[in-house]
Nucleic acid binder design. Sequence first.
DNA 1: ATGTATACGTACCGATCGGTAACATTGTCA
DNA 2: TGACAATGTTACCGATCGGTACGTATACAT
Lengths: 205, 205
Amino acid sequence: MPTDKNIDLTISDGHASAPPKAAKKILDVAYDLFYRRGIRAIGVDEIVKRAGVTKPSLYRSFPSKDELAASYLRQYDLEYWERFDEAVAAHPGDPRAQIKAFLTRIGKRTQVADYRGCGMTNAAVEYPDHSHPARVVSEANKQELRRRLRGMAVAMGAQDPDTLGDGLLLLIEGAYISGQLFGLGGPAQAVARNADLLIEASLKK
Amino acid sequence: MPTDKNIDLTISDGHASAPPKAAKKILDVAYDLFYRRGIRAIGVDEIVKRAGVTKPSLYRSFPSKDELAASYLRQYDLEYWERFDEAVAAHPGDPRAQIKAFLTRIGKRTQVADYRGCGMTNAAVEYPDHSHPARVVSEANKQELRRRLRGMAVAMGAQDPDTLGDGLLLLIEGAYISGQLFGLGGPAQAVARNADLLIEASLKK
DNA sequence: ATGTATACGTACCGATCGGTAACATTGTCA
DNA sequence: TGACAATGTTACCGATCGGTACGTATACAT
């Protein structure tokens, strides 16, 4: 294989600062593989092969496969809140519209073949042990989601904000899971509609 | 086919007339291990060791580990619909109360330490490949759940029964997942309350 | 040019994975 | 007693698992 090491060293990087490039390629490939096929299903050999690097390179940047999985989820966490904040920013001061926008987006994303749900949720299912590095990241992400949803339920003026926030979380998690269980035409496409019904029923009258 | 169906009808009492069947012990142990710690996380060696049998015994009763996992889920399916039908039978002719009973039970089950959610859901997360034997069982179970919930939504007199049925399914799946993510005090304890709110908001007026 | 630090590659480790071959032992029933 | 089916015993297979010892190449500052 003529994988010349000089051709793709710089991926149109802005400046000449040189954080390790192998680490980025590894994390990118691991992200894709872990998300699509599951963490336990992917071996480190496949990661380094697809990344065009070698195993020692992986273990110089990451202490273990478990820690690589945690890094994958930390990256996932960043992008997750980016999407969340986009929905929030699109409707300033209107939490109900923010939720609707976020859920509509989720509902759309679930309606593609081979949708794989939420990487955080999936990782928690794969690693029941609460002390696993990947699970720690996953649980923190979900705690934060709960916190935000309950806060938005307060801002919406719900009679029982905690119950509404938790109800929205249940609908969201249900969408992630049933999206990958049912594929196209599944229940996840109804998540925004149901959330809006639930919100309507939960407001102070 | 060397292995017959081997459906147990062991009398299995204190007398020496019924040798405990290896297949049953294997399936019982696999059930417990697969459910609590995940299918991919458990090796066949651990199963046979805990079952007090040997590996050839496992492979005389089950063609492969994947098929053993499918058998585990078929057993899970049986017990799942037993619990479902119990809630239904407790409130004849009252689908709303049936749902409430079923969801109250789920909400309670989630409020224990180390709750592990739904074995069907977990298996689907562990095996994204739709052709995997375990996933086939899992998807069939969820299709049936969707069918029943939509039917009950019709019987409740919902304005849009399919939407309500799917909304209930999302809440249920959300409870399974968030139950194992949050543990005690998590959002899953609010599943019955939210389902009732959603039902109330979905009925014809 | 040379030292030094960093990035990378070759080759390998022991353990475990799912699965099997060949044979010995047991209990049951005819 | 003989036949049969189920299970146990031991040893083994190739593949893959996560992880590492150790030598080599490149970059840069002196």
